[in-house]
Simulated assay, not measured.
Amino acid sequence: MSADSARRTVRILTWIGLATGVIGGLLVAFPKVLPVGGPWVQLTLGVATLVLAFRARKTGIAEVEGFDGRLSLFAALLGFLVVFFAGQVAFGILVAVANP
C-alpha cells in the first residue's frame, strides 16, 4: 500500500470510528431514544468504534511515516467508554431476565 493510500485509509477509519463512537455516546447519554434493544445497539457501536480505531492505529503505525495517532487514540477511548456504560446496562438486563 502506498503512503498516500495508507494515509487515506487511516483518515477514513479514524473518522468513521469517531462517528460511531459519538453516536454510541449519544445513545448512552439519551437511552430513551432506542427503548427496545438500546444497550445492544450501543455495545455494537462501541465495539465497532474500537475495531475501527485500532485498525487505523495499526495501519498508521505500520505504513505512515511520522504517524500521529492522537485522534485514533481518542476514538479508541471513546469506544471503551461506550462499551463500559452500555455493558453495565446490558448486564443489568441479563441479570433481571435470569432472576425473575
Rank of each mutant, 00 (worst) to 15 (best):
A6L: 00
L71Y: 07
Q42D: 13
I61E: 11
I23H: 01
R7T: 12
L50R: 00
A6K: 02
G92L: 00
F67N: 02
R11T: 06
A48N: 01
F30S: 09
P100S: 05
V36F: 07
V36M: 05
L52I: 04
F84E: 06
G87A: 06
V33Y: 00
V36W: 04
L71R: 13
G24L: 04
F91T: 13
G69V: 07
Q88I: 13
L71F: 11
V97L: 14
A86G: 15
L52W: 06
P35H: 10
L81W: 06
T44K: 00
L18Q: 04
L73Y: 03
A96W: 10
T49C: 13
S2N: 12
V22W: 08
P31Q: 00
V82C: 08
V51G: 01
S2R: 03
A62N: 09
I16F: 11
L78I: 04
L52R: 07
A19C: 04
F54V: 12
Q42K: 13
W40I: 01
A75C: 10
L94Y: 11
F85D: 03
F80K: 01
V83G: 09
V22S: 01
A76M: 13
R55V: 12
G66R: 08
G69Y: 04
F91L: 15
V10P: 10
L81M: 04
F30M: 11
P100V: 01
L73S: 11
W15E: 14
V83P: 11
G38N: 01
T9Y: 00
V95Y: 04
A76H: 06
A96E: 14
I93Y: 09
G38C: 02
T49G: 09
R8N: 08
V64D: 13
T59R: 12
L78M: 14
A86Q: 13
G17K: 03
F74D: 05
L27T: 07
G46E: 03
A62Q: 07
A90F: 13
A53D: 01
I23Y: 02
W15H: 15
S2M: 05
V22F: 10
V95P: 02
K32H: 08
R8T: 10
P100K: 03
S72W: 05
P100D: 05
G66L: 08
F54H: 12
L18I: 15
L43D: 06
L81H: 05
T44S: 13
A56P: 14
F67M: 06
G79D: 08
A98V: 09
V64H: 14
A98L: 14
P100Q: 03
A75Q: 07
L26W: 05
F91R: 11
K58L: 11
W40P: 02
K58S: 14
T44W: 09
V51F: 09
F74K: 03
A29F: 10
G79S: 09
T9P: 00
T9V: 02
N99V: 12
A75V: 07
P35W: 08
T59D: 08
L13N: 01
Q88E: 10
L26T: 02
A29N: 05
T59G: 03
G66N: 11
Q42V: 15
G87Q: 03
I16Y: 04
Q42R: 15
F74H: 05
F30W: 14
Q42Y: 07
L77K: 03
T20A: 11
F84W: 14
S72P: 15
L13I: 01
V33M: 00
T20G: 05
A90P: 12
D68C: 01
F67W: 02
N99L: 12
